[in-house]
Simulated assay, not measured.
Amino acid sequence: MGLTGPLPQVDDYYDAIAYNVLGTGMLFGPSFAGRNWVERVENEGDFTNWGVYFDMDYALTDSINILAGLRYSTDEKSFSWLTPGTNYRDIRPGMEEVIFSTADDYNVGQGVREAREEWSATTGRLVGQYHFSETAMAFLSYSTGYKSGGFDSSTCSPPIRRSSRRKWTISSWALRAILWKTCCGYRSATST
């Protein structure tokens, strides 16, 4: 442009370069010095979990016990995203979001986006116990479980990202004893 030295510290000069040369409102003049840039996503969630369970312990003999249990669980989750846009939108024409942009499918300035999902599962456990004496016992255990899904708090691109529920099984065995009035034992577990 044929200029030498520092840029003139005038907003109009910065605006001319921003809009006419760069095609964006992202170059700021000196009057914006000291102002904070703010972009945010506001989330609100409502999560409800309830379950019903049954557990029993049956003595087959004086030394052998069988324990069994069932649980039904359900999780209901509703979640919302509000992306109001940068605080510069109202004071600077042509302002673009940098972090949470509409190009990345954020609902910038479009109000609240909402999602609701429900996950449920029936899980159980089966345990066999053998009592060597009043102070020593061993057991084998097999149980199932699940973790409900959820929503990504900062991403709301369609379809709204959510994690699915995850099932797992746990197998374990242990040997426990009370020796010299102290409980000690060894336990091993695997999870898939």
Rank of each mutant, 00 (worst) to 15 (best):
M1L: 15
Y58R: 12
G29M: 00
L60E: 08
M26C: 01
G145C: 09
G150P: 10
S157D: 12
H131D: 10
A174Y: 01
Y186R: 02
L3H: 15
S80P: 01
C156A: 13
R161F: 10
W173G: 14
Q129G: 00
G69W: 06
S101F: 03
G25S: 03
S157L: 12
L126T: 02
N107C: 08
E114N: 11
R187S: 09
Y142S: 13
G29W: 01
N65E: 09
T135M: 09
T144H: 03
T190C: 06
I64W: 15
V98P: 00
R113N: 08
W119D: 12
G23M: 10
P159S: 04
G45M: 11
T123A: 03
S148A: 15
Q110M: 13
M137P: 00
K77P: 00
A177M: 05
T192N: 14
P30E: 00
Y72E: 04
M1T: 15
V108M: 06
V10K: 14
T74F: 00
S63M: 11
H131T: 02
A174D: 04
N43R: 06
N65Q: 11
D15S: 05
V10H: 09
T4R: 14
R116I: 05
L3G: 14
G85H: 02
S148D: 07
G109F: 08
V98E: 05
L60C: 09
R116T: 11
P30C: 01
